[in-house]
Amino acid sequence: MSLRPYFAFFKAYFLVYLAYRVQVILWFFTNALEIAFAMLLWTAIYASSSVDVLYGFTLSDMLLYQLLMTLSYSLTDMNPIDTLYDDFNDGKIAMSLIKPVNYEIQTFFQNLGANAFRNMVLLLPMIGIILVSGLLNSSNVSLSLASLGLFVLSIVMGLLINYFVKFVFSNLVFYTEASFGLWQLQAIVISLLAGGIVPLHFFPDVIANVLRLLPFAYIQYVPVMALMGRISGSELTSALLIQSIWVGVLALLAHLVWKHSIKHMKVNGG
């Protein structure tokens, strides 16, 4: 199978965002505001606390964690939900099915194109902020080629997990023909379970242990903790192993769910 047609989708969706320059600028500032807000919040929490170290995190660890989570959020961000919602709900999917392309791969590359564009805009400024802030030094994070390599590997798997989880969710909503409001809820829940709001080890042990088995922790939390040197050695090996198992399981699940959807699809309109 040639991937060439799919790169055409990648490129096309990359270009779509070029057409929305104003939106991109807006979204740049939203990100900046979110980071600033998290920074202020955690600074205030640490200032009002009687201890300097919370669950093994100093203030600068926490600030670095927040920055890296934002960075990894951007790197792993995929929204098949939007694509599938449009395609199913107004029957646009018919227009994809009349073409000799694999819909699953096409959707993936479309989302990857959008992801690449966002990161082209956001990545450099974010890396700049992390380097300039000096937080890497103050939290004793030593970067090496090996640790960066593992981070990239883990982030790529995180992206795949994020994509497949959302792909499966989207299909479930399609079966039940539930309302779109559920999505807002779903986004917040995933963010919480993935450690986007508070680091997972801040949760009580029982909950944290369960969360470590669910796929959500492997989207951003594991790569970020690995980069910060908080997961290492055999613990890191087993984390990466679980991560790759989740990639495989979710990819299979996504495929099965899709097969089911397509068989039961009623194409609206036309």
């Binding site: 060439r4 047609p5 096309a12 107004d90 029957g91 009349i98 000799p100 309109g269 036309g270």
Partner: peptide, 22 residues
């Protein structure tokens, strides 16, 4: 409905089709 990509310049839609159908 259209089989072209809503947000893309028409030219780009045709480039995608060219690749799809080789």
């Amino acid at each position: 409905r259209t089989q072209l990509w809503w947000d893309l310049p028409l030219q780009e839609s045709f480039s995608v089709l060219k690749e799809i159908y080789q």
